[in-house]
């Protein structure tokens, strides 16, 4: 039971957070063809927007989720206009470096507006729920997983049922043919940012509910997010969901004391597990588990 309560459940929760962040990375890579290094800081921004919404409106963090998604998506669209779109015809590395710059700016913006100290949405301790006498689960964990599933379902409906969502997959698949079909890249990229940043805002909020707010919280997650996106096959949003869950579970389960009293891998080296998985994947199957794209 200790395995489930202390390792498996937190692993699934962390996996959901990684998945939501990695979906955005994957969508952006698929449509705009670059690794978005400011994605972690977009998550941070989303988490802090919720902090303000909670303070101003007196609602719970989860109730503020739609506000956070909208504000963060708007920010991402503005960032794209100002810092990424001017470089669309430049070599990829230029946009990647621009996204590094945006990452630094976003983090500073968060520190200027909200300060550099750790903060949290609510004080006090909520008692976890005990099911079947043995399964101990915190209400916030249930909420995070349910909300993540809901968001993924919304994304799925968008990608498979709407004209624009299908166009987004088409651009990601064959950009040249998409142009021949008359699909407007500007509209598709706008919605890529709305969904990518919106899901990142949710991921940031969930991370902050699970732990606390800190200006570096998103930046620190960049490595596992990329590991998740690569594991799932970069450019494939569905792969990113699986990749996120695998990385999250692997990180949490790696500190389970399997053979002795001591954890398999000391918890401080959790990120190392994600990094190891990413390196192995890049060597063994760079296209990812689900045949993602490898661009030369």
């Amino acid at each position: 039971m200790e395995l489930i309560n202390l390792y498996l459940i937190p692993g699934v929760v962390l996996g959901c957070i990684y998945a939501l962040g990695a979906i955005g990375l994957s969508l952006i890579y698929g449509v705009l063809r670059f690794g978005h290094f400011a994605h972690g800081d977009v998550m941070t921004f989303g988490a802090y927007v919720t902090l303000s919404a909670v303070a101003l409106l007196g609602v719970s963090p989860l109730a503020a989720l739609p506000i956070s998604i909208l504000v963060t998506a708007l920010l991402a669209v503005i960032i794209d206009r100002l810092f990424y779109r001017p470089f669309r015809d430049s070599p990829t590395i230029v946009v990647v470096i621009a996204s590094f710059g945006v990452a630094l700016m976003l983090r500073s913006l968060v520190e200027i507006i909200w300060g550099a100290d750790d903060q949290s949405y609510e004080t006090g301790i909520r008692r976890p729920i005990t099911l079947f006498d043995t399964l101990v689960i915190a209400p916030r964990h249930i909420a995070i997983v349910l909300a993540a599933v809901l968001l993924v379902v919304v994304l799925h409906i968008f990608l498979t049922r709407t004209r624009l969502g299908k166009a987004m997959r088409a651009v990601s698949d064959q950009p040249h043919l998409a142009r021949i079909c008359g699909i407007d890249l500007d509209t598709v990229s706008l919605w890529t940012w709305v969904f990518g940043a919106g899901l990142a805002a949710a991921a940031g909020l969930f991370l902050a509910i699970d732990t606390e707010l800190n200006p570096n919280m998103g930046w620190n997650l960049l490595l596992p997010l990329f590991a998740a996106a690569i594991l799932g096959g970069i450019g494939k949003p569905y792969g990113a969901i699986a990749g996120g869950l695998v990385i999250g579970l692997a990180e949490e389960l790696s500190s389970f004391p399997l053979f002795s009293e001591r954890p398999l891998v000391p918890p401080d080296y959790k990120t190392g597990v994600a990094f190891a998985i990413m390196v192995v994947m890049l060597l063994w199957r760079p296209q990812g588990l689900f045949r993602g794209r490898v661009y030369g």
């Binding site: 004209r163 166009a167 698949d173 064959q174 040249h176």
Partner: peptide, 25 residues
């Protein structure tokens, strides 16, 4: 209308979705 020699379909889309993209405009 134009069919390029290579990369003339969307491989990760279904047949119906490919046709729908053809009529995008």
């Amino acid at each position: 209308a134009y069919v390029p020699q290579e990369r003339n379909v969307f491989p990760t889309l279904t047949v119906a979705e490919n046709l729908e993209m053809g009529a995008f405009t």
